[in-house]
Each structure stands twice: as structure tokens, then as C-alpha cells.
């Protein structure tokens, strides 16, 4: 589904943040991406999400060479990828419900067609009561769950999550992770970036560890 070959990345004229990264992500797989702060987890997710192009190497996503994907094809591919950003990026002037519904709304879908799906998903992540609240008054954990719901509403083939448990207490973090695992069982490929080693030790899954710009894989 996704293949990296000798990928390197640098910002501007700076040093290489990622060096010689090679891996494959199979459909329906589940993996953690860890490493110390500043190791390049977010940068790697940016490459996966096609919001940056690698300085060198080859990236293939859904069987397509990332370098050859034109700006007109990008939206189509992004609709197949759900992403949760470290800083959530919810739109503050729209309600939680509208934020979560956004991926369907931009596809030109009629609200009557997706309303019940969105409400159901909000209930599932425990935000049913907070549906009509604006993001600025949500708690950190609630924002996080809203961001996750937004990433999931379009039924993506792959979910990328950057520190999805960064703002929540351990019990909620475990609950969120179980949510991701459940999702994976339903067929979604999942990549979760986190530096919370205590958390991922509770789960026995594949791990990508970034250190000094290099990647080690523990299956």
C-alpha cells in the first residue's frame, strides 16, 4: 500500500532530518511510530500525507509514485487518508459537528445524507453531548477526539495519527488506542506516531523507531 525507498528529507538548506528511510506498510496493518521528541515523526507523517516531497528517494502511495502525483490528483488521494494532527487544526468558528462533517461537506455531499453518520461517530468517540460546541471551549482531550472523528468520517483506507494521546490521561489514552485497534480490525490501515513508550508497551504490534533521522523496524 505504501512503500518508502532510501527516502531522505531536509528542510530548506538545513541538515537531513530523515535519512535512508525504507519500509513498506501493508493494507490492514497496524504500526506505531516512535522516537524522541524532534526525531522526525511528524516529518515522516508529512511525507506519508503528501504535504511534503522528499529531498531524495522514492515514495509510492496506493501504487502511485508520489513525485508524479499532480495537484489535481491530490484531493482524491487525501480523501483516502485520514490524518490527526498534533495540533488538531479544528476550525474555531464551526461547531464540533460541522468540523467532523467537513470532509464529507467538501465532497459536495448533501447534509441530509451524512448527518446521522456524523452524529453516530460523535457518539462513538464520546462527543455526542458536545456536538454543537465550538472547539475553543472543548477540553484538550475533547478536541483530540473531535480531530480523530474528523479523520475517520470519510472511511479512509489509512489513518495517520500524530500524538493522538498527547493530551489525555492514561485511561482515556488506552480507550482511544482500543478505538484505533477496533478500527484496524474493521480493515483500516493505522499508523500512530507517539513518544509515549509506556503506552505502546501495553500493545504487541509492529513498531517503527526513529533515532537520529534513521529508522529501525521491530515486527
Amino acid at each position: 500500500m505504501i512503500r518508502f525507498e532510501n527516502v531522505g528529507l531536509r528542510y530548506g538548506m538545513g541538515p537531513e532530518v530523515l535519512r535512508d528511510i525504507s519500509f513498506q506498510i501493508a493494507p490492514r496493518s497496524f504500526q506505531f511510530l516512535t522516537g524522541p521528541s524532534g526525531a522526525g515523526k511528524t516529518s515522516l507523517l508529512r511525507l506519508l500525507f503528501l504535504s511534503m516531497r522528499p529531498s531524495r528517494g522514492l515514495i509510492s502511495i496506493f501504487g502511485k509514485d508520489a513525485v508524479k502525483i499532480g495537484n489535481d490528483e491530490l484531493p482524491e488521494i487525501r480523501r483516502r487518508i485520514g490524518i490527526v494532527f498534533q495540533d488538531f487544526r479544528l476550525l474555531d468558528h464551526m461547531t464540533t459537528y460541522e468540523n467532523v462533517a467537513l470532509p464529507l461537506r467538501v465532497q459536495g455531499m448533501d447534509e441530509t445524507r451524512y448527518r446521522s453518520d456524523v452524529v453516530e461517530l460523535l457518539d462513538w468517540v464520546g462527543l455526542g453531548e458536545r456536538m454543537h460546541v465550538l472547539p475553543p471551549i472543548l477540553s484538550g482531550g475533547e478536541k483530540q477526539r473531535a480531530a480523530i472523528a474528523r479523520a475517520l468520517i470519510g472511511r479512509p483506507d489509512i489513518l495517520l495519527a500524530d500524538e493522538p494521546t498527547g493530551n489525555v490521561d492514561p485511561p482515556l489514552a488506552r480507550r482511544l488506542l482500543r478505538l484505533f485497534i477496533e478500527l484496524n480490525k474493521l480493515g483500516t490501515t493505522v499508523v500512530i506516531a507517539t513518544h509515549d513508550l509506556a503506552l505502546i508497551d501495553q500493545f504487541d504490534t509492529r513498531r517503527f523507531v526513529l533515532k537520529d533521522g534513521r529508522l529501525q523496524i521491530y515486527d
Binding site: 484531493p75 480523501r79 474528523r150 470519510g154
Partner: peptide
């Protein structure tokens, strides 16, 4: 810019 970046990553076309 935030709105635009969010619209981009949820897969909105530039036309939209």
C-alpha cells in the same frame, strides 16, 4: 491559512 490548510488535508478541491 489554517482554514486553507485544513480544507486541503480533508481533500477539498482548489475549485471548492
Amino acid at each position: 491559512q489554517v482554514v486553507i490548510s485544513v480544507l486541503h488535508f480533508v481533500g477539498a478541491l482548489n475549485r471548492y
